[in-house]
């Protein structure tokens, strides 16, 4: 019996090893949001990012254009200002009687270079060449001269990971700038979609989508994209709104981090909600 067992194990050793490896992989998957795992990730990607930044440095030497960079920064600032003024104008028309409108104040923009990207269908991440030493913290929004790109998700000393709009795990509160209809925007692997909007809601093709006042992640009125189509969901009572982003993830090489420090109370509440999710 014993020899049969040992023979069996010996003969199928590779299969046992495969099962062990696959079980390890699967058991690690749910631990991704664990603080210790995040810490290990931030150290490791920071170390490897040094190599990739060297290549980026060489590319930048070849195609460096300081004037263009300055213009892009100026464009990004003007884009934010323009969007803010448009939103305020629309709000002003609709809510004349309100005395205190939301403050979409100016935030300092920190310029960064993209040193690597993950462009698969699910995880649109990028690594930029600024980190904790530049006062970057997780949760800061990242934009380019056209609009919102994503938020910082992990930070090491000199590098940061940006979770972009094209990441299935990134959801953000947005609104239709014209009608003020709110929704949650997410990436479905092919498109940016605002899901489950009632068919009666006033959203038209061509409407501009901006970040919402209700977003705890990013300030309001940052341009996100434009509505290109509506798709009826299964029930027929709800629509999925397809949004074409203003930013082109593939060609973004210079980005700007909005130096926003999220309120401690909001962070505490968000952590509480995430803990609740993990406990379920």
């Amino acid at each position: 019996m014993k020899s049969f067992l040992s023979k069996f194990i010996d003969r199928n050793r590779n299969y046992f090893l495969l099962i062990i490896f696959l079980l390890i992989s699967l058991s690690i998957l749910p631990l991704n949001n664990h603080p210790q795992v995040s810490k290990i990730k931030s150290y490791a990607f920071g170390a490897f990012a040094v190599f990739t930044s060297a290549v980026n440095f060489l590319i930048n030497i070849v195609s460096s254009d300081d004037e263009l960079e300055k213009q892009k920064l100026l464009n990004a600032e003007l884009m934010l200002e323009n969007s803010r003024l448009k939103s305020l104008g629309l709000e002003n028309n609709q809510l004349r009687k309100m005395l205190s409108l939301k403050d979409t104040s100016n935030y300092p923009l920190i310029t960064a270079s993209v040193i690597s990207k993950i462009v698969d269908n699910i995880h649109g991440n990028m690594i930029i060449n600024i980190g904790a030493d530049n006062n970057i913290t997780a949760g800061m929004p990242v934009i380019n001269e056209r609009g919102l790109l994503g938020v910082i998700s992990d930070v090491s000393r000199n590098f940061s990971v940006v979770r972009t709009l094209f990441n299935a795990n990134f959801k953000i509160a947005v609104m239709d700038q014209r009608s003020g209809i709110e929704g949650i925007l997410g990436w479905n692997g092919s498109n940016l979609v605002i899901s489950n909007i009632a068919v009666t809601e006033d959203i038209k093709i061509g409407d501009k989508i901006i970040t919402s006042d209700f977003s705890t992640l990013v300030p309001p009125a940052i341009p996100v994209g434009v509505v290109i189509s509506k798709r009826a969901s299964y029930s027929g009572l709800l629509n999925d709104i397809i949004v074409e982003p203003f930013v082109d993830f593939g060609i973004s090489r210079k980005v700007f981090v909005m130096s926003i420090v999220t309120d401690d109370e909001i962070i505490a509440l968000r952590k509480k909600i995430e803990r609740g999710k993990n406990d379920q």
Binding site: F21, L22, I24, S25, L26, S27, I28, L29, L31, N32, V37, I40, K41, A44, F45, A47, F48, A49, S116, I118, H123, N125, I127, S153, D154, V161, N169
Partner: peptide
């Protein structure tokens, strides 16, 4: 998975 900032476990599997 670690150096790309992706989800650890997915590429491993």
């Amino acid at each position: 998975d670690i150096v790309s900032g992706g989800m650890i476990g997915s590429s491993m599997f």
